[in-house]
Design a protein around this nucleic acid. Structure first.
Length: 508
RNA sequence: GCCCCGGUGGUCUAGCGGUUAGGACGCCUCCCUUUCAAGGAGGAAAUCGCGGGUUCGAAUCCCGUCCGGGGUACCA
C-alpha cells in the first residue's frame, strides 16, 4: 500500500518552525515512497479560529519548498479538506452513530460548572483528574432519554476501557504501553455539535487512508484514546510517529524571546528556502552518515521515520546562518540576482525590517539594488557576485552592496582616522586621480592592480598596505569588503574620481 | 499528585556489546591574502544525566534515581 501522510494544522496562530518541520517530515516521507501528502485544516474550534491563518500556513509550506497532492486550496478525491466543511457534509455522523449503537460512546450532560467542580474535588483528594465516569457513563437509558427530552445540552464521550493496557506502536519510540485506567473519557462531539480533534482527526485519517500519523509529541499522552477509537471502529491503525519539539536556546519553548518564531519571519529576514528546510530537517533527523548539506531531493531519498530522533532539539540560529551562507554562495549569478531582487521587492520584507533596529540600513541598501535593476545598471550582477561570499542572508546584500550604487559612500569615521593621516595619502590620491583622468575607458582590474602596485615604489611606502587601505576607504567608506581591484573595476573611472575628490576633503 | 516521553562536547547529531566515542555549527591557532569573508590545516571542548547491576567487555542490555518536557479541557 502506498504511503499517505497528512499535515493537519489548526488555523489558530502563525506556524513556527516546529510546525513546519513536521510538515517537512510528512513531505519527505511521501516523496521517499512515492506516496501522497495531504493538507487538512483542523478548524473545529470556532472560538480559536484566526482569520488569515490558513493562507499563512500554506504560504509557509510553499516558502520552504513543500508541495502537496491534496489540500484545501487544490482539492482532491477526499474533499473537503477543512473539518468544519467535513462536519457540514455529515461525514462524522455515521461514525458517531455506530459508536453510540455499539455502546462505545455515550451521552453526557454535565455542565461545565459541574465538570470544574468535579476536577477540583479530584485535585483536593489527590485523584487523577478527568472524566472517569461522571453521572452518565453508566446512566440508565431512561435517564439519558429524559435529559434529551428536556433539551439539555450534552456531549458525546468515548467509553475508554478501564481494564486493559493500550499499546501504541510508535516509529520513533517503539512500543508504548499505557494503562487504560489512566485514560478518562474524551469528548467526541461537543455541545455545539462540532467534533473534537480526538474524533474528527481519527475519522478523517481513516477516511483519507492515512498510513503514517506524524504529529507533535504532545499528542503521545492522548494517543491511547486514538488507538482505542481505531480499535472499536475496527479500523487498521496507522503508524504513529510522534516527533519531539524544537526549543529555544534556553531549552524552553520557542518564543519571541528567542528571536523569530514565525516561519515566514525567516523568509522575510532573508533566509533562502533550501537552507531553512535543510536546517530544520536536521533538528531531529539525520541520514545516518555524516551528510549535512542536502537538497530536498537528497533528503527525500534518504528519509525514514525510523531515523527520527526522539529527543527535543534546540534551534541554533548560528548554524542556520552558516547554512544560509553556504546556499547563497552555491547560487549561480542568475538565480542569485532573481532571489535578491524578489526579496528586495517583496512587501513582507519591508514590513519585517520596518519593525527592527537595523531595518533602515537593510531597506536603504536593498532599495539601491532595486533602483539599479530598474536603471539597467550593468554593475548589479558584478556587485552581487563580489559580495556573495561574504554575506549570510539576502538582506545583507543591501548594506553590503550599497557602496557600489550610492552616489557617495559614507566614510567610516574610524577608518578615516586610521588611514587618512599618513603623508603619502595625499600624493597617492592625486596620482590615482591623475592616472584615472588619463584613461579613456574604465580601467580593468589588471590595470588598476598594476598601477596601484607601482605606487608602492613611487611613494616609497615599502608595502601594499599603505596603498590599498586608504584607497579602499576612499572607494567604499569601509575597511572591509571585496578585493580592491575587482571592486574598483566595477565602480568605473568616473565614480572613482568622484570618490577620490570627496576623500581628498577628508584628509587629516 | 497521577500517567507518559526524553537525557552523547555550548548547540545539532552519528553510534545500536569491543571505536583513540565520529561529523557539523560555534570558539581558538596557523596557512592563503590588499582588508573582510570564503577556503585549507590543526586545536580546545563529552568521566555518553547519576548510581547500581548483567557481561571478559556497556554510551549501547536490565533496575533504580535525578533532571527536563508533555498530558491530565466541550483546545488543537
Amino acid at each position: 500500500m502506498s504511503v499517505r501522510v497528512r499535515y493537519a494544522p489548526s488555523p489558530t496562530g502563525s506556524p513556527h518552525v516546529g510546525n513546519v518541520r513536521t510538515a517537512l517530515f510528512d513531505y519527505l516521507l511521501a516523496r521517499r515512497f512515492g506516496g501522497q501528502f495531504i493538507i487538512r485544516l483542523e478548524d473545529t474550534d470556532r472560538t480559536r479560529f484566526i482569520e488569515g491563518c490558513e493562507e499563512e500556513i500554506l504560504e509557509s509550506l510553499r516558502y520552504i519548498g513543500i508541495t502537496w497532492d491534496e489540500g484545501p486550496d487544490v482539492g482532491g478525491p477526499n474533499a473537503p479538506y477543512r473539518q468544519s466543511e467535513r462536519k457540514e457534509a455529515g461525514l462524522y455522523e455515521p461514525v458517531i452513530k455506530q459508536l453510540l449503537e455499539s455502546g462505545h460512546a455515550y451521552y453526557a450532560f454535565e455542565t461545565s460548572e459541574e465538570l470544574t467542580e468535579m476536577r477540583e474535588f479530584q485535585q483536593i483528594n489527590k485523584q487523577p483528574t478527568g472524566y472517569f465516569g461522571g453521572n452518565w457513563r453508566d446512566a440508565a437509558p431512561e435517564k439519558v432519554a429524559a435529559a434529551q427530552a428536556e433539551g439539555k445540552p450534552g456531549v458525546i464521550r468515548l467509553r475508554m476501557p478501564r481494564d486493559q493496557r493500550l499499546v501504541i506502536q510508535d516509529a520513533v519510540r517503539g512500543r508504548v504501553e499505557i494503562d487504560g485506567s489512566t485514560q478518562d473519557d474524551p469528548v467526541l462531539i461537543k455541545a455545539d455539535g462540532m467534533p473534537t480533534y480526538h474524533f474528527a482527526a481519527m475519522v478523517d485519517d481513516h477516511l483519507m487512508g492515512i498510513t503514517h500519523v506524524i504529529r507533535g509529541e504532545e499528542w503521545i499522552s492522548s494517543a491511547p484514546k486514538h488507538v482505542w477509537l481505531y480499535e472499536v471502529l475496527g479500523w487498521e491503525q496507522p503508524m504513529w510517529v510522534h516527533v519531539p519539539v524544537i526549543n529555544g536556546k534556553d531549552g524552553k519553548k520557542l518564543s519571541k524571546r528567542h528571536g523569530d518564531t514565525r516561519c515566514l519571519d525567516y523568509r522575510d529576514a532573508g533566509y533562502v528556502p533550501g537552507a531553512l528546510a535543510n536546517f530544520i530537517a536536521l533538528i531531529g533527523w539525520a541520514p545516518g552518515d555524516d551528510r549535512e548539506l542536502m537538497s530536498m531531493e537528497e533528503m527525500s531519498s534518504l528519509f525514514s521515520v525510523e531515523s527520527l530522533n526522539g529527543s527535543p532539539g534546540i534551534f541554533d540560529p548560528d548554524k542556520l546562518i552558516w547554512m544560509n551562507g553556504h546556499y547563497l554562495r552555491a547560487m549561480d549569478a542568475a538565480t542569485l540576482r532573481q532571489m535578491v531582487l524578489d526579496y528586495a521587492k517583496r512587501p513582507s520584507t519591508h514590513a519585517y525590517w520596518n519593525e527592527r533596529e537595523e531595518g533602515a540600513a537593510m531597506l536603504a541598501g536593498l532599495k539601491l539594488l532595486v533602483d539599479a535593476e530598474a536603471a539597467g545598471d550593468p554593475r548589479l550582477d558584478a556587485a552581487l557576485r563580489l559580495e556573495q561570499e561574504r554575506v549570510t542572508t539576502l538582506a545583507e546584500f543591501g548594506p553590503a552592496c550599497a557602496f557600489f550604487f550610492a552616489p557617495q559612500p559614507e566614510l567610516d569615521e574610524k577608518a578615516v582616522e586610521k588611514w587618512f593621516g599618513e603623508a603619502h595619502v595625499a600624493p597617492l590620491f592625486a596620482n590615482l586621480d591623475q592616472w584615472l583622468s588619463e584613461q579613456g575607458e574604465n580601467p580593468t582590474q589588471a590595470e588598476i592592480e598594476a598601477f596601484l602596485k607601482a605606487q608602492v615604489d613611487v611613494l616609497g611606502v615599502g608595502k601594499l598596505g599603505p596603498i590599498v587601505h586608504p584607497t579602499r576607504v576612499a572607494m567604499t567608506g569601509r575597511t572591509y569588503g571585496p578585493g580592491l581591484w575587482e571592486l574598483m573595476e566595477v565602480l568605473g573611472r568616473d565614480r572613482m574620481r568622484e570618490r577620490i575628490a570627496h576623500a581628498q576633503t577628508q584628509l587629516r
